[in-house]
Amino acid sequence: MRFAFDKMHGLGNDFVIVDARRQPVAIDAARARAVADRHRGIGCDQLILIEASGEADLRMRIWNADGGEVEQCGNALRCVAALTGATRIETAGGLVAAEQGGGGITIDMGAPRFEWDAIPLAYPLDTAPLPLGWDGLAGGHALSVGNPHIVFFVPDLAAVPLDRIGPVIETDPVFPKRINVNVAEVTGPAALRLSVWERGAGLTRACGTGACATAVAAIRQGLVSGPVEVRLPGGPLVIDWTPGGTIRMTGPATHVFAGEAEWEAFA
């Protein structure tokens, strides 16, 4: 069976998007890993499946490159909105709204959650800051923006070996669903620089939910005021949040190419 797909990226965070509304396909962890493989597959950070939804324009499902299905992906939301024109998208992390404008795609990510069991943690702990540390990184702020994040603010982002510390924090037993690890440096009154170790994908050029979580944590601590420009290795996103409100993320979505492949090649 041949299937059609679109290759897209948001600031270098890249996706293979399959529209299963046209042609049903079955995804499991092994197949997701095979599609994501950059040497033997199509290659991507995440595999995105579009399905019909009874409560929104469509449903979006997300598999990381390691084959794990996850709840939310901000960059993929922008890409799916740009590809399909959808304005309401159902995800495992909740319903989100999308708007298209001259400045890019804006996604209303919903309200952040700060309760220990909403992130989740394995047991009750203060989440802002979390009273834990890993190899010099301490005082992290844990929150959920549809998926779990921990955010650390440091004076020198370049001095943090996130490629080494990231996987240790991601898989710590205190995070039963693992966690995305964000390390940020405040560079201005409304500006941050950010690196992200993404759960199931590793170091990434951009993470939309990571930018949202980091901006929220920084605004909550009074380190910056919104809207905040969050600069990732792949480029900037603009995040706006007022305490008590929802998070709005604005950034680009780029279509790279459309293609077809043999489904059996990824068995």
Rank of each mutant, 00 (worst) to 15 (best):
P112G: 10
P112F: 15
F114Q: 14
F114D: 11
E115Q: 13
W116S: 05
D117Q: 15
A118Y: 12
P120V: 11
L121N: 02
A122F: 01
P124A: 12
D126R: 14
T127E: 01
T127Y: 00
A128D: 15
P129N: 03
L130Q: 07
P131M: 08
L132E: 13
D135N: 08
D135A: 15
L137F: 07
L137W: 03
A138M: 04
G139D: 02
G140I: 00
L143G: 00
V145G: 04
V145R: 05
G146T: 06
H149E: 13
V151L: 11
V151M: 05
F152S: 08
F152E: 09
F153G: 03
V154G: 09
V154P: 03
V154N: 08
P155G: 13
D156K: 10
D156S: 11
A159G: 09
P161R: 10
L162G: 00
L162W: 01
L162V: 01
D163G: 15
R164H: 03
P167V: 04
V168L: 15
V168H: 02
I169M: 06
I169T: 04
I169H: 05
D172C: 12
P173N: 13
V174E: 07
F175I: 11
P176A: 13
P176L: 14
R178E: 05
I179R: 12
V181G: 03
V181P: 06
N182A: 07
N182R: 11
N182F: 08
N182V: 13
E185W: 13
V186A: 05
P189M: 08
S195F: 05
V196L: 11
V196G: 05
W197Q: 01
W197D: 11
E198G: 08
R199N: 09
G202A: 02
G202C: 06
G202F: 09
L203P: 04
L203M: 14
R205P: 03
